[in-house]
Amino acid sequence: MQQQEWIFIAIFFVIAPILPIMPIALPQLLRLAPRRANKAKLETYECGVETVGDAWVQFKVQYYLYALVFLIFDIELLFLFPWAVAYNQLPLFAFVVMVTFIAVLGVGLAYAWRKGALEWQ
């Protein structure tokens, strides 16, 4: 049964990109839109003045500390789902275990908070 569902998903993955490709490609194939490119038109927009330098430079990413916290959280949270699905059939001990697990996560969050990792500079 599940195999059929996944075949449907596979078909959907093919259909879904075709839908947006059509309205983008059709006007160009049918020449509905004008094509009069010139040098000034193809310039990168920067408030009307001439573009200064490249956008592909090394740039300070302010949220890399958030990203580290996110990475840990996201991986740990995936462990919650098998537990949540089976929760009603599990003994009381499962609840205690998960509270401990979430508490460890919470301590990690508190540590990051205390260290100032959650402040936006």
Partner: peptide, 27 residues
Amino acid sequence: LITKEDITPAGADRHIYNIAPIMVVAS
């Protein structure tokens, strides 16, 4: 929108630039 000219800036990375609008709707 259909009759608008389709402009790809000279400095853009053509492949990434063109894939993005398709991917955003598809996803």
